[in-house]
Design a binder for these strands. Structure first.
Length: 272
DNA sequence: AACGCGCCCTGTCCGC
DNA sequence: TGCGGACAGGGCGCGT
């Protein structure tokens, strides 16, 4: 499932492929992936040049020449692929097709259609941006900043990390991997996280996210990059999806516990 | 008002 | 072999 590292990988790949290219047309196959009225979406982007691609949280951003932008939330199974990529033909659930003036297409494919494409004006984006939490790879994401946020919630720390309004871009996989690295149990209440633990968690998040970016993301089942290729980080996961298998640090079998309808994996010994 | 829950959706897997 | 049902989960709308 695409989280920050996957969105970052896609944005970095798309940027040089899209910068300066003009959108000449749009074909919407599944209009439920378009937020708002699909006609308004189409009219708003028609004929405009793309400036490239960026990222905010888990969202891939496609800025346009009029300072508006297409905001792509990939949901669970969303893929953004240019038609010149070798594996573009493997897309089986095409939802939206942007026609480009250089003969290529930008394809949005989404098996479960949990993803959303939205066209926002510069002002509307500013409002949306303000609703998203702190970027965990930014300089502002200090141990103290994280600690101040965790103090304010009684929810399990795993749930806190999934809240995009608090820390932007962290999903279930990297939340659980970071908690393992930091030695904190996912069920630990946010307000009980100590200053020292907040420091470890901050370092762990930055470590896991930047390493995942270096490996071009995690393909647990569905994720593909902008060329349609799988990510390389899955073999490096320590707890996610490893229920019953020995902890890489201590050998204790990894446990799975359902927290608010989502699996949490942890080592009961290393995360005491 | 912070927080939990059910829903959306389809591929995959399990049991009978 | 085939089929029904459970499961996976990010985000959002809703209720408390």
């Amino acid at each position: 499932m695409p989280e920050l590292p996957e969105a970052e990988t896609i944005a970095r790949d798309l940027h040089p492929r899209l910068a300066g290219v003009r959108i000449t047309g749009l074909r919407v196959i599944h209009d439920d992936v378009i937020a708002g009225d699909p006609r308004t979406f189409a009219d708003g982007i028609a004929g405009l040049h793309l400036l490239g691609a960026g990222r905010r949280g888990k969202n891939v951003l496609l800025p346009l020449e009029d300072r508006s932008r297409i905001v792509v939330n990939l949901g669970m199974t969303g893929r953004l692929v240019t038609s010149d990529a070798a594996r573009a033909g493997e897309l089986r659930h095409l939802a939206v097709c942007f026609t480009l003036d250089d003969g290529r297409d930008l394809l949005y494919d989404d098996t479960r259609r949990f993803g959303r494409l939205q066209h926002l004006s510069a002002e509307a984006w500013l409002e949306r941006d303000a609703e998203l939490g702190i970027e965990p790879l930014s300089d502002r994401f200090t141990a103290d900043a994280l600690w101040r946020l965790t103090k304010r919630t009684r929810s399990p720390i795993r749930n806190f990390l999934l809240d995009q309004g608090k820390v932007a871009g962290v999903g279930n996989i990297y939340a659980l991997e970071a908690l393992f690295l930091a030695g904190i149990r996912p069920t630990r209440r946010g307000h009980r996280v100590t200053r020292r633990e907040a420091r470890r968690l901050r370092d762990a998040l930055r470590d896991i996210l930047s390493r995942a970016i270096r490996h071009r993301g995690t393909t647990f089942s569905d994720y593909r990059d902008a060329s349609g290729e799988v990510g390389g980080f899955e073999p490096l996961l320590k707890v996610y999806g490893r229920e019953g298998r020995p902890c890489t640090r201590c050998g204790t079998p990894i446990k799975r516990k359902v927290l608010t309808n989502r699996s949490a994996f942890y080592c009961p010994r290393c995360q005491a």
